[in-house]
């Protein structure tokens, strides 16, 4: 009973408590770069979740064998392996998405969230908790990417997943799909998220 409770706790903390990249301010580079369109954001989120989930499981299961001095090198080798697997599979089955994400797929290797979870969580906790942590953080990251890319795509291009959803005379706010739009969108969302707990605390 206690175990089941902590699995769900480790899983759900990725959705709010340390939701990346808002709470855990890591992984900002892919967040800013690939959130022009919902399809790209979701693809990136799912790819990252896959890598995070499996690297957490593997690292957690061999943590007692890895000598302290070479742990970072070992983590990077494991993470890089999963990233290349994602890259090859995406190239073979989702080529159009692979073309759009381009360089940002291999760059998942150096995404701080993944190495951060390996070092801070998977290397200190049992396998089932690490799996829950990886999946939770990954899905939280996917949600965040989805949210930002939805805002940017709807305002910046007037479409959602490539379908036109705004009224006919809507003039796309092209600024939102340019790079500065990503920063402003991220900043506003961060500000809003910081506002919520302050109010809750104040009420208490």
């Amino acid at each position: 009973m206690v175990k089941a409770k902590s699995i769900s706790k480790e899983f759900f903390k990725g959705f709010w408590e340390i939701l990346p990249p808002f709470r855990l301010v890591l992984g900002l580079c892919p967040m800013l770069a690939v959130t022009k369109y919902v399809e790209n954001g979701l693809g990136m989120g799912i790819a990252t979740t896959f890598v995070l989930f499996f690297s957490n499981i593997i690292i957690s299961s061999i943590k007692s064998v890895i000598p302290k001095k070479v742990r970072i090198a070992s983590y990077i080798v494991i993470i890089a392996t999963f990233v290349v697997i994602v890259e090859l599979v995406m190239q073979a089955f989702f080529y159009s998405l692979f073309e759009k994400l381009g360089i940002f797929i291999p760059l998942i290797v150096v995404n701080c969230i993944i190495l951060g979870r390996a070092e801070a969580f998977a290397s200190k906790n049992p396998i089932h908790l690490s799996a829950a942590d990886g999946l939770g953080i990954g899905l939280g990251f996917t949600m965040s990417l989805f949210l930002i890319s939805a805002i940017r795509e709807i305002l910046g291009a007037g479409t959602f997943l490539g379908m036109h959803i705004m009224w006919g005379s809507y003039e796309p706010f092209a600024f939102m799909i340019e790079a500065p739009g990503a920063f402003i969108c991220l900043g506003l969302l961060l500000a809003m998220m910081n506002l919520v707990p302050t109010k809750l605390n104040g009420a208490n």
Binding site: I62, I66, V70, S74, I78, A80, V84, I85, V89
Partner: peptide, 21 residues
């Protein structure tokens, strides 16, 4: 131990990648 562990990890990963590729 450091050398052995890192070599084993890299070898296993190498085989895995070769298979997927």
């Amino acid at each position: 131990k450091m050398v052995v562990v890192l070599t084993v990890i890299a070898t296993v990963c190498g085989f895995l990648l070769a298979t997927v590729r």
